[in-house]
Nucleic acid binder design. Structure first.
Lengths: 359, 359
DNA sequence: TTGTACGCGTTATCAT
DNA sequence: ATGATAACGCGTACAA
């Protein structure tokens, strides 16, 4: 067992209380005794027992980060931002992967409550709105990326408007038959809705046969789903996707079927994970500032913890179009004069790279 | 504040002790009182306070995972394996990113000790051998990927023999001028040594001007380093790398300098992160079973925790050659008849894919 | 300025 | 079979 305040007190010839005072810089002490205590502390390598401290204070100085899949490259960046702010404030972070399983997510929340966690951050929850409300009523909680009203603190990525923007981008490039590979869980619903709105607002027909879904947003699933889409609706000239991983699956499906990207099919993603700029062709996508999102999440959680009681607050992180090569030139189209010029440049970059669209 | 055993005891009309008994299935109790307590527990939603429990038991049921960079795709897989086993045994995992900083690493260890952590897993430590020994003497510790003797429990990736194997693979393909982009920290030293041994054992001259280093094993650094290498030693026809990220940096540098991969320069990586099979050309690399490594680490840590006292044990995880496209055909070389055949196939796959080499 | 005593929520030893 | 009671290590009114 490690050394306790008792040991230090004995060694320094003072009471336990005095030790506590110097450890916490509280009350008044003679410089002499403070020194005696200090040396005793360092001689014995004393570290206050956080457990005992937490037991009396009621604060454990630890929070939990619940994510569906740490292996999805989206989350590590967020996790790093969270940990960075947490560290600065003396908080530790429990890592909780739910493996996309709502059951496991609830199991974690239960276990964490028993651990006297001070707060919880949930990214990409697999629970429903009602469950989240309940959790929010019981624990300081910050969630990311769901609809606004949870009587909770939430930071949203602009899913709907993001997919609206990038799908609009495809339409402006001249595409009239735009498919979509979505995700049936989490933020997938909102993102797909943005796709639909873009088509509607630009008077492009929405045909639900050109919309397919993956259940996990993983590359392999997407490859299969995209294969179905491209075979059933070979007329699509562009595909907007739930996220970058899905987009990469779509590009693989294109390769499988002998369709060239971007010449035959333009593909766009979402999130701008590192992978997006490394695949060939480099993926046009919406950049989401993930590290910063993590920082915002932890900052907000600290405020929620400080306020006792329900803390309703809703923030947004803006995403930003990153034009690359995967939706480069469009085949000649009467509609857009720009398309002609683009054709000359072949797939040498997306026009948006030069002139980003306004939101 | 949450409900305590006291509350339950009051409600059920029994003593606190009795509640403790039913919660922990210990001692003998009448079925009647057990039921009374059980209903009180569920009515009040009682969860035992882990902090208090830990304070008396001396075990916190939580461990820490220390890694240099969660954003390096190598680590999330390991983390997932660790968490998977940890969960099964009721342990929680603290996430600790050191940002490649030994100082921060030590800071974490200090803080964790105060948190009464039951054990620590360190991947890719930035501390030196002596510091690690000290830590190992103080806490149940498992480390990964350093030299055998730390009077600690360690699981090693076969760095040296892995790079030996893959570099040998390049030589067998006919390459006689093989460069190397290494990493100056962590396991980089051993890996580079494997590269050197491969050259020596195959009677290929080792020329240190063809060896350059990155300080972090990141893509951008590697791109710069490789640029230097390719300009200073344009005669190299193959490059073996510290890891996949570095290999990708090397491929980028090749693109920058107009050298084609694999036609002009063959490139091989290490680790087989998801990215490796997604870049173009797909990267030939050594596959490291990361999830399984994570499982082994946590299993071992549990044994270390069970044994009190120093636990010396040394396990290995084998890596395995994954032949892909990045070191495909070799230009005609008198030495190897196979090279000729390969030439016909162009870069349609690495020979190793069909016939993996024996270790 | 310093020490005493009690409580945080639980487990465990000893009575009853 | 159940109930007092004393730890576990620390914070903090309150007393000295």
């Amino acid at each position: 067992m490690s050394t306790t305040m008792r040991d230090v007190a004995l060694r320094a010839g003072v009471s336990i209380n005095t030790v506590s005072r110097v450890v916490n810089n509280y009350g008044e002490i003679t410089e002499a005794t403070r020194q005696r205590v200090m040396t005793a502390i360092s001689e014995l390598h004393f570290r206050p027992n956080t457990l005992a401290r937490s037991l009396v204070s009621g604060k454990s100085l630890s929070v939990a980060l619940i994510i569906p899949q740490i292996t999805d490259p989206f989350f590590p960046d967020v996790a790093l931002g969270i940990e960075s702010i947490a560290r600065q404030h003396g908080y530790s972070v429990f890592q909780c992967n739910t493996e996309d399983n709502a059951q496991q997510e609830m199991g974690y929340i239960d276990a964490l409550a028993a651990k006297q966690i001070d707060g919880i951050i949930i990214c990409g929850s697999r629970m429903d709105t009602e469950q989240l409300s309940k959790v929010s009523a019981l624990h300081p909680l910050v969630i990311v990326g769901r609809s606004p009203q949870h009587n909770a603190a939430v930071i949203s990525i602009c899913h709907e408007s993001g997919l609206f923007e990038i799908t609009s981008h495809l339409i402006r490039l001249g595409h009239r038959v735009v498919g979509h590979v979505g995700c049936s869980v989490g933020s997938g619903v909102e993102r797909t809705e943005g796709y639909r709105r873009a088509l509607r607002e630009h008077d492009v027909a929405v045909d639900e046969r050109r919309v397919v879904f993956t259940s996990r947003g993983a590359i392999d699933d997407a490859r299969e789903a995209a294969r179905r889409l491209l075979i059933q609706s070979p007329e699509v000239t562009a595909v907007s996707c739930f996220n970058d991983l899905v987009a990469i699956g779509v590009m693989q499906a294109c390769a499988d079927l002998g369709r060239r990207v971007p010449d035959d099919v333009a593909v766009v993603g979402f999130d701008d994970i590192a992978l997006a700029s490394l695949v060939t062709p480099a993926l046009t996508t919406m950049h989401v500032p993930r590290f910063h999102l993590g920082e915002m999440l932890m900052d907000l959680l600290l405020r929620v913890i400080a306020d006792e009681g329900i803390h309703e607050e809703h923030l947004y992180v803006e995403s930003e179009l990153r034009g690359r090569d995967s939706c480069g030139a469009r085949r000649s189209v009467a509609w857009s004069p720009a398309a002609r010029e683009n054709k000359e440049r072949k797939s040498n970059g997306d026009p948006a790279a030069a002139a980003p669209l306004e939101p």
